[in-house]
């Protein structure tokens, strides 16, 4: 399998102040990576870097050719503004095709079909013309994932996707992400606080604390000192 994305000793930061340094990992097609770490550990900085919004200060970030041409599917955290935004589900999903559209002022039939296909994948086709703001939190996340898949269906980056969801919706969303990963071979990078579920879902773990503290598969992580203490910390808290 090909490497989708490789980081070689990459450092990211703002205005030459390094927020996260010396990160090295790679992701192959269809792999599921979880990025964990405490607040301020550089998770969001790394993500901005992967999305191409920050240039690496050091090291290099290599994307595979097809990914360079399309874009990375991205699920950002929801903003306040979206809570009363008048838009139908289909309008939201279609906006994921923005990059393919180029300079043309309107979407083509093919792009509309892509949008529809992705809505179906997420089981949301019946909600096509419903107002986005009237959906439940979990349904809104599904719509936004469908939008991200319109950009590419090879790599999805999810930024704390379960924030604000109730336990049932959280479980449902995790299962959905897992299914996308297994059935459609979509590679996943998920940034999360929910370390216990993350370990159950993912194949690989990247643990950050301003630098790379751990990268490897889940079994190794559970055995490692840092993984062990972090996992037990979670248990102790609850």
């Amino acid at each position: 399998m090909n490497e989708l994305l490789t980081c070689n000793n990459v450092s990211f930061g703002y205005e030459n102040i390094i927020a996260i340094s010396e990160v090295s990992f790679s992701l192959k097609e269809g792999e599921y990576l979880c990025v964990v770490g405490e607040n301020g550990s550089g998770k969001s900085t790394l993500m901005k870097g992967l999305l191409g919004l920050l240039k690496p200060l050091k090291g290099e970030l290599v994307l595979d050719e097809a990914l360079q041409k399309s874009s990375i599917g991205y699920l950002p955290q929801q903003t306040d503004l979206q809570k009363d935004f008048p838009a139908t589900v289909f309008e939201v999903v279609l906006s994921g095709c923005l990059k393919q559209r180029g300079l043309l002022p309107f979407y083509s039939k093919k792009q509309k079909e892509t949008a529809m296909k992705n809505l179906k994948r997420l089981g949301m086709e019946d909600f096509k013309s419903r107002p986005y703001k009237e959906l439940s939190g979990g349904q809104q996340q599904r719509v936004l994932i469908a939008r991200a898949l319109c950009a590419t269906d090879r790599l999805l980056i999810l930024d704390e996707p379960v924030t604000g969801l109730d336990p049932a919706a959280t479980m449902e969303l995790y299962e959905l992400i897992k299914r996308l990963n297994q059935k459609y071979q979509v590679a996943i990078i998920m940034v999360t606080h929910d370390i216990k579920s993350a370990v159950n879902q993912a194949d690989l773990v990247l643990h950050l604390g301003q630098t790379q503290l751990f990268f490897g598969n889940v079994e190794e992580y559970k055995q490692s000192e840092i993984g062990n203490s972090f996992l037990n910390l979670g248990k102790g808290g609850k």
């Binding site: 191409g52 919004l53 874009s71 950002p76 979206q82 939201v92 906006s95 923005l98 559209r101 979407y107």
Partner: peptide
């Protein structure tokens, strides 16, 4: 119109799609 929609609805996503 469509770009304006995307930027208004979700700046971070629009940014990530270039």
């Amino acid at each position: 119109y469509h770009k304006i929609f995307a930027v208004t609805f979700d700046e971070s996503f629009a940014c990530a799609t270039g």
